[in-house]
């Protein structure tokens, strides 16, 4: 009997959704565009160069590492592009190029690839690199030039006891890193991600809510009364929106369970406020998220959902 070509077989299901890792990364990149473009227009061509350089450095690092290690090249999943972009918009607009490249290499090589690549890292690579740069080049990382003059970030001004214009902060009329200044643009991107079901609303909602409540209590207890201006400044400043929508929600380094996500968000919310209000620095988002990342395995362990039919008894 003539043997015909055998058909494909595989384990069920035999249909798959059209969502892929690459598409998800692309969605996040798209969601970052309003803030990125706003930052570039505001800070000029050097900001554009800085962002492009970090992206290229991040992608090249992954490519070269994988070539050297004779592993399949995974730059097509766009996660390195996203890491580069996130790092780029987290830099001050006048940051030296070579330091930015160093940061991108650190993010991809040390934080991501050495732990096994996509999905295996326990810290958000872009944030870890930012913290690395802050420690290594503290001066350059905290110098913010806006309108040609070196100025303090709104939160630093607030900490020094000055008053700030919240509306200007919301619309991005203040100093800061390339992507963090315009809360409105970040909000647009964040809401886009929630609508497209890319991120879980729980993390940004509970993170921002925790910060609001914490600062409110602080304002009542330590500043002798409710200060709306003070609370709003904390919500609009210091990259909170960038952190809440784009950094804390990083799949790999946030809890996978629903309850876990709420615990994690509340935890980093409290930590952010502790750093901001009681620490020496005016900012606290990056470190809070990084420490939150480290606690993720623990949080996941204690938040295993109750399975369907648990505790059911025969009639």
């Amino acid at each position: 009997m003539e043997e015909k070509k055998l058909l494909n077989i595989s384990s069920n299901p035999h249909v798959r959704s059209n969502s892929t890792t690459q598409k998800i990364m692309l969605e996040v990149i798209i969601a970052l565009m309003p803030a990125t473009i706003f930052g570039i227009i505001k800070f000029g061509w050097y900001a554009l160069v800085l962002v492009l350089v970090t992206i290229i450095a991040a992608v090249l690092t992954e490519f070269i590492y994988e070539k050297c290690m004779k592993k399949p090249v995974t730059i097509g999943d766009l996660s390195a592009v996203l890491t580069g972009l996130l790092l780029g918009i987290n830099l001050p607009p006048t940051f030296p190029i070579w330091m930015a490249i160093l940061g991108a290499i650190f993010a991809i090589l040390v934080v991501k690839m050495l732990f096994g690549g996509l999905g295996q890292n326990f810290m958000n690579p872009a944030l870890a690199a930012r913290c690395f740069l802050v420690i290594s080049f503290a001066g350059k990382m905290t110098t913010f030039v806006y309108d040609g003059v070196v100025s303090a970030t709104p939160l630093a001004a607030l900490k020094a006891g000055e008053s700030v214009d919240v509306l200007k902060m919301f619309l991005g009329q203040s100093g800061g890193t390339i992507g963090e200044t315009c809360t409105l643009a970040l909000l647009v991107g964040g809401i886009y991600l929630i609508i497209r079901k890319i991120i879980d609303f729980r993390i940004p909602l509970f993170y921002i809510l925790t910060v609001a409540v914490f600062v409110c209590i602080y304002s009542l207890a330590a500043r002798g009364g409710f200060d709306g201006q003070f609370i709003l400044a904390h919500l609009c400043g210091g990259g909170l929106a960038l952190g809440a929508f784009f950094m804390a929600t990083d799949y790999v380094t946030s809890p996978i369970t629903h309850t876990g996500r709420i615990i994690y968000a509340v935890f980093i919310g409290c930590l952010t406020c502790v750093f901001r209000l009681f620490g020496p620095s005016a900012e606290g988002v990056s470190y809070a998220i990084i420490i939150g990342n480290i606690l993720v395995p623990l949080i996941e362990k204690i938040t295993v959902p109750k399975f369907f039919g648990k505790g059911a008894q025969a009639k």
Partner: peptide
């Protein structure tokens, strides 16, 4: 790709 821990399966 590797699992990206998106939680969609949950």
């Amino acid at each position: 790709t590797h699992c990206i821990s998106c939680g969609k399966c949950i």
